[in-house]
């Protein structure tokens, strides 16, 4: 067994084990932390597949932002108490049977006869000066530049949607009323009063 295989099976074991621990965890915060471990193992497996940029992105974006957002919401909503009455419904045996059948079918379809090393040989490793980021950027900014822009628009829409959903209307908020500003008259803003000039009275 080569060292590459040992690393792969080690990482796969932790990926599968943390995923199982996640779905059986009673506490949502613990489940989120197990998912962090799972994402970390997945990123390591992606590095084995020479996808360094996506592996770093998985850790930075998912572990650094998305999972922190999950933990933030879990702690903010204080749902740890509500999970006390958590129970696994009677779907567990049926779910396990369905999952085992799916895994068996997938193993038959994706086995060594179809995707083994004889059918699809392992590609030669890139040289040390190969840059995964350069290759991805060349594709992303030429062939896929239009989807890239659309992804940016999608993120903007997501920001606006998320803020609009959770935004509370406050009563005493100082808000700009554009129609009032446009329709304002001079007499609303300026008041002309006639007062006696004190300098004339002194003379």
């Amino acid at each position: 067994m080569s060292s590459e295989q040992i690393i792969f099976y080690f990482l796969s074991f932790w990926f599968v084990a943390s995923s199982l621990a996640m779905i059986f965890a009673r506490n949502a915060a613990k489940a989120a932390l197990f998912l962090v471990l799972g994402f970390f193992s997945a990123a390591s497996i992606w590095i084995l597949l020479e996808a360094e940029f996506l592996a770093i992105t998985l850790i930075l974006v998912y572990v650094g932002a998305v999972m922190v957002l999950f933990l933030f919401v879990i702690k903010m909503l204080n749902i740890d108490k509500s999970t006390l009455r958590a129970k696994f419904a009677g779907y567990l045996p049926l779910g396990l049977i369905v999952a085992l059948i799916i895994i068996a079918e997938m193993t038959l379809v994706l086995g060594n006869a179809q995707f083994g090393l004889e059918v699809m040989p392992s590609p030669i490793r890139h040289a040390a000066d190969y840059s995964n980021i350069t290759e991805l950027a060349l594709q992303l900014y030429t062939t896929y530049v239009y989807p890239f822009e659309l992804a940016a628009v999608l993120l903007l829409i997501a920001i606006i949607a998320a803020i609009t959903l959770v935004h509370k209307k406050e009563i005493n908020r100082k808000k700009q009323s554009i129609s009032e500003q446009v329709n304002v008259q001079a007499k609303d803003r300026v008041r002309i009063v006639s007062i006696a000039s004190p300098s004339k009275e002194n003379k």
Partner: peptide, 18 residues
């Protein structure tokens, strides 16, 4: 991993975050 995620959706009775 896909099947583990699927089973997680099946058996989950706790909260929507999971």
């Amino acid at each position: 991993i896909f099947c583990i995620g699927l089973v997680g959706i099946f058996i989950n009775r706790t909260n929507i975050i999971t």
